[in-house]
Amino acid sequence: MKTLVIYTHPNHKSLNYAFLQKTMEGLKENPLVSDIQLLDLYQEDFDPRLVFNEQKRRRDMHLDPDLKKYREQLLWADKIVFIYPIWWGRPPAMLLGYIDRMMAANFAYRKKGSLLPEGLLKNKSAVIVSTMEGPTLYPLLWLNNAHKILMKRALLKYVGFKKVKFFEFGSMEKKNGPQAKRLEQIYSYFKAVSS
């Protein structure tokens, strides 16, 4: 199982970075994981801005030479792990910019004349590890599950992913909160995950 980990947090001393470390630790100990690539969007200095002009046309996004490396990563991976905080009920703008630029027509999906397009990133699964300051049930009860709907239905299922698993960890900024327990949960999950 080839695994791409996409990490989106600007601080390497953050709790999200600790989740990244536990994820990598578990994946490296998993005998079913054949190879791992890490994409740290902030460290990579990924440019999240969409640019459309005479030189860069929207219909040609899937051929943008600046994004070739990232397209190859997505095609290569069997499993994609996203690690990020939930800010204002959604992923960070950096990750949303990555999604805007990468999930282009004729790369991630193809229009076929019917209501829904054909997802081209098939036979892949995703795991989303996200943290938030508020309680775990906040997105469900207050935001009608907007985060999960965005990431699973509006994005990953749309482009062909079959399986999407979420770890939404709330109350992560509380003193004496469940941080250590959640870190161990993530390590154990990735050490044993099979598909």
Rank of each mutant, 00 (worst) to 15 (best):
K2N: 07
L4Y: 05
V5N: 07
V5H: 07
H9K: 12
P10C: 13
N11D: 15
H12G: 13
K13P: 00
S14C: 09
F19Q: 12
F19M: 09
L20E: 01
Q21E: 15
M24T: 06
M24C: 12
E25M: 06
K28E: 11
N30V: 02
P31F: 15
V33G: 11
D35A: 09
I36W: 15
I36M: 14
L38Q: 03
Q43G: 15
Q43K: 09
D47E: 11
L50Y: 07
L50F: 08
F52C: 05
Q55R: 08
Q55H: 13
R59S: 02
M61W: 03
H62W: 06
P65E: 15
Y70W: 04
R71Y: 15
R71M: 07
E72Y: 03
Q73F: 06
D78Q: 07
D78A: 03
I83C: 00
P85D: 13
P85F: 01
G89Y: 02
R90M: 13
M94V: 10
L96K: 12
L96E: 08
G97R: 08
G97S: 07
R101S: 07
R101Y: 04
A105T: 07
N106E: 14
A108C: 11
Y109A: 02
K112T: 08
L116R: 09
G119V: 05
G119M: 08
L121D: 06
K124C: 02
V127A: 04
I128A: 06
I128E: 04
S130Q: 01
M132S: 03
M132G: 03
G134A: 10
N144P: 05
K148I: 11
I149H: 12
L150Y: 15
M151D: 11
K152V: 01
L155T: 14
L156A: 08
K157R: 13
Y158W: 15
V159R: 02
F161S: 13
F161M: 12
F166R: 06
F167S: 01
F167H: 04
E168Q: 13
G170W: 06
S171T: 02
K174H: 02
G177I: 00
P178R: 12
E184L: 15
E184G: 04
E184A: 13
Q185M: 09
S188P: 06
Y189A: 02
Y189C: 02
F190N: 08
K191Y: 05
V193E: 10
V193W: 08
V193I: 14
